[in-house]
Design a protein around this nucleic acid. Structure first.
Lengths: 341, 341
DNA sequence: GTACCCCGTTCAATCGTTTGAATCTGAGGC
DNA sequence: GCCTCAGATTCAAACGATTGAACGGGGTAC
């Protein structure tokens, strides 16, 4: 392996550059940081910049952090990298972080003994701020969050305890799905909801029932079934739903992974999608277009969610309230899983 | 939002703890770091530990990093979070990092203007070592890597330039796939390979042709088609393959995303899988089991790959050669996409 | 000629931790 | 009663950057 330009030699510091340029290190520091209050002769500046380039000076970030109490790193903690929804949130967050002069790093809870331990590792002085996505924080996690000296906020979830979050208008997404099914002529519409404890599931359920009654449609309790946000959860829920006396002709599934399970189950029951049953879901991930039939989904601005989260984290004082609900740029992406009645 | 135990007050430092315990800060530092050479009276240790707990002392990691030139952070750079293969690599790497007393953070190139810029941001003093997964590094990236003072190594890819990498035995994975198809009675077997520039694609192709000739089977050039590691790439390649005079009865696809595209394309051509054509691929991601028909795959130890990469990064001197090939724990996972001829 | 001011630069303290070396304190040996 | 010595603790010098304050020198005003 080859090494740096001056392999073996000691790290180049401000002092080295200052000596090479024949000035004090204070000057060099101010040049490096583009201090607007610095008064400097053009030729001196040139000398300093030449010395910086010549020696290949890179500031020592630990020293800078020690002095300024800033690291330039923002952290994002997610429950699991295999959930494709997070890929888009991360992309948006990374872009926003970089354009604000920071770096975003992502960690999942899988590494540590517990999610709480990971928060501890990451939160304690390694980052300037923390974004937390995914499941509800346990009381243990909550305690750790409270003990951190850095700002943090929740992404894609609300929590009674904290008034700092950025979420999507999940109710709207559900309403759009129902809207679509109604336009196709469906009236016997069911909903496979997420777990009652999940914030997004609650809001999608609310949106679903609102939209139904707006269209004068009834939703008997048997038409609303709860299932985990997983393939198995969806399959199980679909089985239950289809065993009822009056089968629905369309289903809005709260989550894309569950929707894939629903497709499997319907196929196993000998039902054709969309011939016998139309299926629509929320979150337009790659997975949705890969399955057969390709899923009709409601696409929500996940990248934007990540970006807004970063900006809110940076722009608002740590104690300020942040309650942001993104409701623009929702699109119904029609594919093969829905058809007119 | 609630704050730390002593919100508003200044950060607790070693000096504060030392004062509270009535000792010098040097003692506290050695207690915190469990210095084995420390001679200390039990009652003093108790006093120190009580003071630490009482004041809620947390070491300042920037100061520690400045002094020790270590950050306790390892970085992993991947091209794209939406590729499900990386989820497992990350999981393995995170676990290994934490059990060695470090934290692993992951970043993708999507955030920065260029992948090279990201390497620069992350590599320069923020992490103790860097793992690089994914596509081949550009010459620009290579130059930045060379200028870093920290150790790095490639994950899941080789490179002529660098003798530091950890990879899987991709050839073996291809051989196992062929083996499986041969056992099912297939002889007309085709291969959809990845791009020629991709290291893993090359090795899988080699494994494929080796296994074929071992079984006395011929592979005319028309039976080997190149396609991107994407769904579209797979679909395109499948279309080309099926337009040839003698259609194969089985296909080994080098990549799981491409394999999904192949399924789509075959279905569009009115061919049944596995009725008319069997399909087997490499990498057992969640996606593989979600599509219909569920894909038969070769599962490789991706978590182990991530873990070994971390351990190699930590355990070998930065200039030492690391050429690790993982070949154990490969499994053929049979699902619905392959059947006897 | 002296006082003053401003431009350009240097001084020096500080951030909090680590760690080799120095110091102190009794107890024991003679 | 003095020396030694080990055990327990303190001293102090780094690590490299940031930043408010001080400084020096040349020009201008009077």
């Amino acid at each position: 392996m080859t090494r740096g330009p001056r392999a073996g030699t000691k790290r180049v510091t401000l002092v080295d550059v200052a000596a090479a340029a024949g000035v004090d290190k204070a000057i060099v520091s101010r040049v490096v940081n583009r201090d607007p209050t610095l008064l400097i002769r053009p030729e001196t500046r040139v000398r300093v910049e030449a010395a910086i380039a010549e020696l290949g000076y890179r500031p020592n970030l630990s020293a800078r952090s020690l002095r300024t109490a800033k690291t330039g790193i923002l952290g994002l903690v997610i429950p699991d990298f295999s959930n494709p929804v997070y890929a888009q949130i991360i992309a948006g967050a990374e872009t926003a972080a970089v354009s604000s002069g920071n770096v975003l790093v992502t960690g999942s809870a899988t590494g540590a003994a517990s999610p709480a331990a990971y928060l501890d590792l990451l939160g304690n002085g390694r980052v300037d701020g923390l974004l937390i996505a995914g499941g509800a924080p346990s009381t243990q996690e909550q305690r750790i969050l409270d003990s951190l000296d850095i700002p943090w906020l929740l992404v894609n979830r609300r929590d009674r305890k904290s008034r700092r979050y950025v979420i999507l208008d999940d109710a709207k997404s559900a309403r759009m799905a129902v809207e679509h099914l109604v336009e196709l002529g469906h009236t016997e519409i069911a909903h496979i909801a997420g777990p009652k404890t999940t914030d997004t599931a609650q809001r999608r359920l609310t949106g679903f029932t609102e939209a139904m009654s707006e269209h004068g449609l009834r939703t008997p309790a048997s038409r609303i079934v709860v299932g985990e946000y997983t393939m198995d959860g969806g399959a199980e829920a679909a089985a239950k739903l289809m065993s009822s006396r009056r089968r629905p002709t369309a289903i809005y599934v709260a989550n894309v992974a569950a929707a894939v399970g629903v497709l499997h189950q319907l196929s196993a029951l000998g039902l054709s999608v969309p011939g016998d049953v139309s299926v629509v879901t929320t979150h337009d991930t790659e997975l949705a277009s890969h399955v057969m039939p390709a899923l009709t989904t409601v696409r929500m601005p996940l990248r934007e969610l990540g970006a807004r989260a970063v900006r809110s984290l940076l722009d608002t004082p740590p104690d300020a309230q942040v309650e942001l609900l993104l409701a623009d740029d929702f699109t119904l992406v029609q594919r093969e899983s829905t058809a007119p009645l």
